[in-house]
Nucleic acid binder design. Structure first.
Lengths: 200, 200
DNA sequence: ATATATAAACTACACCGTGCAGTTTACATG
DNA sequence: CATGTAAACTGCACGGTGTAGTTTATATAT
């Protein structure tokens, strides 16, 4: 790897770390160069302004998160098991350090500069990408009965977000894996109590 | 009213406005004095530091919100109707301009300075104050069956928060009253499907 | 050799908080 | 009703600090 690429990576790593721990505003470019073990001039050779660096960080973090498999409905499997799979993936994402970092940075910026709100929200992550298709297939197969599928999908995801994501984001609590499992079980129980097709 | 009280109010009003629209960090004391139509020196005669002003703002806004009635369980009324009453009160609070203001200011500060997190979370607003008691009474009366009451209470509240509060907070969408009514209906349907005692 | 990195000093600016000389307001007293 | 007075407000300049971004002169990697 060329030296310049290595330096660039050091800068991005340091920015990710510092923007997360101290916030964009509270991170000075001197501090950042120090942490990156790079001269400040080198930072500016790679990124014209602090804002350009911030945009690059955001992009890189989104790219890292874009990966992740899709769960497709399978009529031969119990619905409860498939929902658990979806929820486990989602909780793993929502509680991952990488996701919390980018979310914290992005949300702080959005709250400070509301005009950037919709620009951020466009990118779709995690199970949000495929859950509508999944639920549609499950309804078609007669396993679920849902009148408003996008709404029901939100109800499911919001359960997980509310218990797992926001408390971590605001620095209140972290969940143990056992607690996470309980949250998932209860979210599924709530969802199926409402939407699972009853025999007869 | 005495002049000094009037000036103090002008300062607090300006701070509330600017802290909300620009964030605490991005609001300068010069800008604030200008908006308050008060000399900067007067600001400092009332509040020793910017942080003291911030604390005062937070206190004043919490005080404004502290009002609000409590819904107590009534065995002679349908549970669905009582839950709707609770949810309506909560949604009114969560979507009120006053609540969104204080929440935005407080959350921005907490995210920038995580060490203040638990200090903030202590104050309990809205139905969070009484919902555990309500659900306990409903279970005792045999109307609901809930194993983990605090958890179930969170499930209910989080539905409302997720659909009403966070989207507004992040500047994404506002709900029409009709949409709010739909959100409330669906939250109750979800909750009762899981926790309402079945006859027989 | 030539592009890139480094270190350190420098510019330009914004901001917090203070000091002070002079003015306004509220109110009491002759 | 006039006048005195204490408290509060004003406007402005200033010290100190922190930070984005630049310059310059030098060293190092390819």
């Amino acid at each position: 790897m060329k030296l310049t690429d290595k330096k660039r990576m050091q800068i991005l790593d340091a920015a990710e770390e510092l923007f997360h721990s101290s916030g964009v505003e509270h991170t000075s470019m001197d501090q950042l160069a120090l942490q990156a073990k790079v001269s400040k001039r080198t930072v500016y050779n790679h990124f014209a302004t602090k804002d350009a660096l911030f945009q690059a960080i955001l992009q890189r973090m989104f790219d890292k998160l874009a990966e992740g498999g899709e769960v497709r409905f399978d009529a031969t499997q119990p619905i409860e098991q498939q929902l658990r799979r979806i929820a486990q993936d989602e909780v793993a994402l929502l509680s991952s350090a990488a996701f919390l970092r980018v979310a914290k940075i992005a949300i702080m910026q959005v709250m400070q500069r509301p005009e950037l709100a919709q620009h951020m929200n466009n990118s779709s992550l995690g199970c949000k990408r495929y859950i509508d298709n999944f639920l549609t297939d499950a309804c078609t197969a007669g396993v679920l009965h849902i009148a408003d599928i996008p709404f029901a999908g939100k109800q499911f995801i919001y359960q997980l977000k509310s218990f797992v994501f926001y408390p971590s984001l605001f620095g209140l609590e972290q969940q143990t894996p056992a607690q996470q499992a309980h949250i998932i079980d209860e979210a599924i129980a709530l969802f199926l109590a409402r939407y699972q097709s009853k025999p007869g």
